[in-house]
Simulated assay, not measured.
Amino acid sequence: MIRHILFIQFTEDVREKDVASIFMMFREIKSKISGILSVECSKNNSPEGLNKGFSHCVVMDFVDEHARDAYLPHPEHETLKQQFVPMIKDIIVLDYEV
């Protein structure tokens, strides 16, 4: 299984309703692309203050590397990116094998 994590810093003009809309698109993509096991999206609530400006994250689990690799160029992912990328000030993407 491959875990795909996005640490997100949104631009200052992005509203919570915009974030909610993008997170809904992430959750819905699971039913549109095979090989996605789960999708979780949330806002940071750590009291440690070590998030370095990253306020939200998305965690996706894929059955394997092939599923993740098929997701990346998939038209549904491209549609999501068209909405998502303009909202991003900074992002970290980390994948690892579980």
Score class of each variant (00 low, 15 high):
residue 44 N to T: 03
residue 46 S to N: 03
residue 43 K to E: 06
residue 33 I to C: 12
residue 64 D to T: 04
residue 93 V to W: 02
residue 27 R to W: 13
residue 64 D to W: 01
residue 65 E to I: 12
residue 52 K to P: 01
residue 15 R to Y: 15
residue 68 R to H: 00
residue 25 M to F: 08
residue 9 Q to L: 03
residue 74 H to Y: 13
residue 43 K to F: 09
residue 49 G to L: 06
residue 64 D to L: 02
residue 62 F to T: 00
residue 98 V to L: 15
residue 41 C to G: 02
residue 76 E to H: 10
residue 59 V to P: 00
residue 20 A to F: 10
residue 2 I to P: 05
residue 42 S to E: 11
residue 61 D to I: 06
residue 96 Y to N: 01
residue 91 I to E: 01
residue 10 F to K: 03
residue 37 L to K: 15
residue 78 E to D: 14
residue 58 V to P: 00
residue 74 H to L: 09
residue 51 N to S: 09
residue 41 C to H: 02
residue 47 P to E: 11
residue 86 P to K: 14
residue 75 P to C: 04
residue 7 F to W: 13
residue 13 D to T: 11
residue 5 I to W: 07
residue 81 K to F: 11
residue 30 K to F: 02
residue 41 C to N: 05
residue 82 Q to I: 13
residue 80 L to P: 09
residue 15 R to W: 09
residue 65 E to R: 15
residue 24 M to Q: 13
residue 46 S to L: 03
residue 57 C to E: 08
residue 36 I to C: 07
residue 10 F to T: 05
residue 14 V to T: 07
residue 50 L to H: 13
residue 59 V to Q: 11
residue 11 T to N: 13
residue 5 I to E: 08
residue 42 S to G: 14
residue 81 K to W: 08
residue 59 V to N: 10
residue 49 G to M: 06
residue 7 F to V: 14
residue 91 I to C: 04
residue 20 A to P: 09
residue 24 M to S: 14
residue 31 S to A: 15
residue 24 M to E: 14
residue 18 D to S: 00
residue 88 I to S: 02
residue 68 R to Y: 04
residue 98 V to K: 15
residue 66 H to I: 12
residue 6 L to N: 07
residue 27 R to P: 05
residue 87 M to W: 03
residue 31 S to L: 13
residue 84 F to I: 01
residue 92 I to Q: 13
residue 88 I to P: 02
residue 84 F to M: 04
residue 39 V to E: 03
residue 16 E to G: 05
residue 21 S to Y: 09
residue 15 R to Q: 14
residue 16 E to S: 09
residue 4 H to M: 07
residue 1 M to P: 06
residue 83 Q to H: 15
residue 5 I to G: 05
residue 61 D to G: 02
residue 57 C to M: 12
residue 25 M to I: 05
residue 54 F to L: 03
residue 60 M to R: 04
residue 62 F to A: 04
residue 13 D to S: 13
residue 64 D to C: 07
residue 54 F to C: 00
residue 27 R to A: 09
residue 6 L to M: 13
residue 32 K to M: 08
residue 33 I to F: 11
residue 80 L to R: 03
residue 93 V to F: 04
residue 67 A to S: 15
residue 69 D to R: 12
residue 5 I to M: 14
residue 63 V to E: 12
residue 82 Q to N: 15
residue 31 S to W: 09
residue 59 V to K: 08
residue 20 A to C: 09
residue 14 V to N: 02
residue 33 I to T: 08
residue 62 F to C: 00
residue 51 N to K: 10
residue 38 S to R: 06
residue 70 A to Q: 08
residue 35 G to D: 01
residue 90 D to K: 15
residue 80 L to N: 00
residue 3 R to T: 04
